[in-house]
Amino acid sequence: MNEAVFTTRNLTKIYLTGDVEVRALNGVDSELYGGELAVLLGPSGSGKSTFLNIVGGLDRPTSGQVTFRDQDLATLSDGKLTLYRRNHVGFVFQFYNLIPSLTAWENVALVTEVADNPMPPEEALAMVDMEKRMTHFPAQLSGGEQQRVAIARAIAKRPEVLLCDEPTGALDSKTGVIVLEALTRINRELGTTTAIITHNAAIRNIAHRVISFIDGKIAEVQVNDQRIEPSEVVW
């Protein structure tokens, strides 16, 4: 196994909604290893998204430690967190979050402009088979296509980690498979540490490891000896 990219110790996140205290994360100890593809499973409210947000530098824990390599993310300033996201993390969201006023190519270029060592936008789009639709605006693309552009945008800066929150959540099974294929291919070819949140248990078998969340804690970590191809996933 490669060395751990992320390590969390007793990671806790408490939200205050009105007077009600919600423990979204309740002492999570975990690792994500370099080059692995991990699937984060769990029902709604189990804490997996909160976990991903903290690891991705979008949110801070209430207590506990979260380190990226040797850096403690919990103590970084807003500006440092921005730089961390800019330089190390690629995000893919359920609702794509493409900029409607930019074409596919421009959406990717948006990120490559500010990255240190990006790949050309065309190359990133080619990795997700979208090079033929580069000049289209998001409104001219199907959901699956939009999500693939979002993946291209996430990987174009050659991030060390790719964090995907329900990347197939808004897609039908056929397009979902195509998106998963793009993700596994990138993980394989670029060696990008990839974490995919899903509550579709069928996807679990494409991962190296499956981390199950329940009630803000990790309930189980399962290592897949036998991984399957996305095309074999039965929805």
Binding site: T82, V89, V114
Partner: peptide, 16 residues
């Protein structure tokens, strides 16, 4: 808001 928040997520600074 969504667009701008996305930019922030991608690592663009507040000023950008």
């Amino acid at each position: 808001a969504r667009e701008l928040a996305s930019l922030r997520v991608f690592g663009f600074t507040k000023a950008e």
